[in-house]
């Protein structure tokens, strides 16, 4: 029972992070390898806002989430905008460089030690029990946030005006631009949303158990979830996260705890061998890259 809960929590973490990869990839065909760092930035922003609004944890959280949304937009406007239409490799490497930069700056500002934003905010993390299993409050919140994020993203992409534009831009950028869709606006929106969801994941994980500068590794481990499901499919990311998380939790439990860091990548390689475009991805992708 506890295993099921663990799988569910880990799957929601991966799913929430993976949807950031999917959003950006689907819209602009760029793989954002700085996603883990942007996620960590969200967690650090909570530390900053916690000292700013020290009596209002909700306000501080909202401010941090908003700031990470803005920082996603800034990343696009000042950096990735220049890489639009460049070689895929150049764009990926730019995000890698961005990741290194963020990591360095974050350590410079906040130092490299383990941080506990929950203490800074003055919120507790009680353990809830469901039947025989237990789950911490913030992990439960994470599951809830993931569910609502996916629900709202589905609705937004399916029925929203901007969501439709995003899908159009992803399907055929040239045609979309000719029909009067502002591509730069769409891409910026994708970066904003992606950073927002990533930061939510980072913040909730940090509230649950604290975090260090090594947090981006989790972001990287969530990438296989996105790829297993198909890099341009949100529903796929959800299923992919579930697959990767179950594989990880079960293997850690039954085989070896040290496997934790490598299981998602084993799944990734298996997927790349069998079906590189993922469970629900579009097959033509592969040739277009």
């Amino acid at each position: 029972m506890q295993l099921v809960v663990n799988i569910l929590v880990l799957a929601s973490i991966y799913a929430l992070i993976a949807c950031g990869y999917v959003l950006i990839y689907r819209v602009s065909r760029v793989l954002n390898l700085a996603h883990g760092e942007l996620m960590m930035l969200g967690a650090y922003l909570v530390l900053a806002t916690a000292s700013l609004f020290d009596q209002h944890p909700a306000l501080a959280l909202a401010a941090a989430v908003f700031l990470s949304l803005v920082s996603g937009g800034l990343v696009y406007v000042f950096l990735m905008r220049k890489m639009t239409g460049e070689m895929v490799l150049a764009a990926i490497l730019t995000t890698v460089a961005l990741g290194i930069f963020i990591k360095g700056m974050v350590v410079l500002i906040w130092s490299a030690q383990q941080q506990y934003p929950a203490q800074a905010l003055g919120v507790s993390n009680p353990s809830l029990s469901i039947g025989v299993a237990s789950i911490s409050l913030w992990s439960a919140a994470l599951v809830g946030v993931t569910a609502s994020t996916y629900a709202s993203l589905f609705v937004f992409l399916r029925f929203g005006r901007w969501g439709m534009r995003m899908r159009a831009a992803g399907q055929n950028p040239l045609l979309a631009a000719q029909r009067g869709i502002n591509l730069h606006g769409i891409y910026a929106l994708a970066w904003c949303l992606s950073t927002l969801t990533g930061a939510c994941a980072g913040i909730l994980m940090a509230l649950d158990s604290g975090f260090t500068v090594n947090m981006p590794v989790i972001g990287l481990k969530a990438f296989p979830a996105a790829l297993v499901g198909g890099l341009d499919s949100l529903g796929g990311a959800l299923l992919g996260a579930l697959i990767v998380a179950s594989a990880e939790v079960l293997l850690i439990y039954y085989v070896d705890p040290l496997l934790s860091d490598v299981v998602p990548f084993l799944v990734l390689i298996a997927m790349l061998i069998v079906r590189p475009w993922g469970l629900f991805g579009t097959r033509e992708e592969l040739d277009r890259v």
């Binding site: 890489m83 150049a90 460089a97 961005l98 700056m105 410079l108």
Partner: peptide
Amino acid sequence: DIFAVNYAAFGVVMILFLL
């Protein structure tokens, strides 16, 4: 924090070259 400065500066240089 010399290590962190290195990181940040390295990122910036890489970005500058790419751009």
